[in-house]
């Protein structure tokens, strides 16, 4: 099946190229720094009243209440940070689904052998699987940290891990779809990331203006990818999946737009 060959090739694009390994090493280093200098000390000293106030200042009321919802402090911190940081990483790492191949002309070689739909969906599936690997990697690293620093919490953390994993997998889904769409419309990965960020900000301002001027329209609160994050971060346990339809709906809409753009674009 061409769609799976193309999806599998996304892994080759990551693991069999210098560029891919640089991205992996960069993520590993950034995450190691984050783990060592943010999650570990924050979890250790969270009980200190001064640091509790400090963390509340950083995370705001939302983050602070989120921390109290989870039994494992490290997992709670990971939950809050991953919800907001991983989508940004996705917007960078999944940016080159179509763009550079289209500009270079490599896409022409592929189009002779697979339909545009197969290429578009194959690349999306491949990139999404890579994001799942990133979630697993970061989650396992946090579990390893807990096992090392607070072994008494590991069973609780292991019980909470599937909820966190499932939610992050849902949260990243529309972001991969968003990058699939903007990648079709861009000529390079960098441009795709720029388009996605600028487009997101412009839409956010626009929706705010419409709400303020003509609103309120509650449905507009859910238009942007990631719009459920504010609500999601307050939840814990499997209740978090109550918000799952939102990222799924975002994904379907963004994929439909991307597929339409892919079918119509000149190669």
């Amino acid at each position: 099946m061409p769609i799976f060959s193309i999806a599998r090739n996304e892994f080759a694009r990551l693991f069999f190229s210098r560029h891919g390994w640089l991205a992996i090493i960069a993520l590993g280093l950034i995450w190691a720094v984050f783990l060592n200098y943010v999650i570990r000390p924050a979890a250790q000293y969270l009980s200190s009243p001064d640091l509790g106030i400090f963390l509340e200042a950083i995370l705001g009321r939302i983050g602070s209440s989120a921390l109290s919802n989870w039994q494992s402090t490290e997992m709670a911190l990971y939950w809050v940070f991953a919800l907001y940081l991983l989508p940004f990483f996705t917007m960078i790492s999944a940016a080159d689904q179509i763009a550079s191949d289209k500009t270079r002309g490599t896409m022409r070689f592929l189009v002779l052998r697979a339909s545009r739909t197969q290429i578009f969906l194959g690349r999306f599936i491949g990139q999404y699987c890579i994001q799942l690997l990133i979630i697993l990697f970061t989650l396992l690293s946090v579990l390893a940290l807990i096992a090392f620093n607070a072994p008494e919490n590991i069973s609780t953390a292991l019980a909470e891990a599937p909820v966190v994993c499932a939610n992050l997998a849902l949260v990243l889904l529309p972001y991969v779809a968003l990058m699939a769409l903007v990648s079709v419309l861009s000529s390079s990965a960098r441009q795709a990331t720029l388009f996605a960020i600028v487009g997101w900000i412009v839409l956010w301002f626009l929706l705010g203006y419409v709400q303020g001027r003509f609103g309120p329209f509650p449905i507009l609160d859910w238009v942007l990818p990631g719009s459920q994050l504010g609500s999601l971060v307050r939840l814990s346990g499997w209740d978090t999946l109550n918000l799952a339809p939102i990222p799924l709906l975002h994904t379907v809409v963004l994929l439909a737009l991307g597929w339409f753009a892919m079918r119509r674009c000149d190669l």
Binding site: A12, R13, F16, R18, H19, D101, R104, T106, F109
Partner: peptide
Amino acid sequence: QDAHLDPRF
């Protein structure tokens, strides 16, 4: 014309 293979592989 002007189509190139991926330089990374």
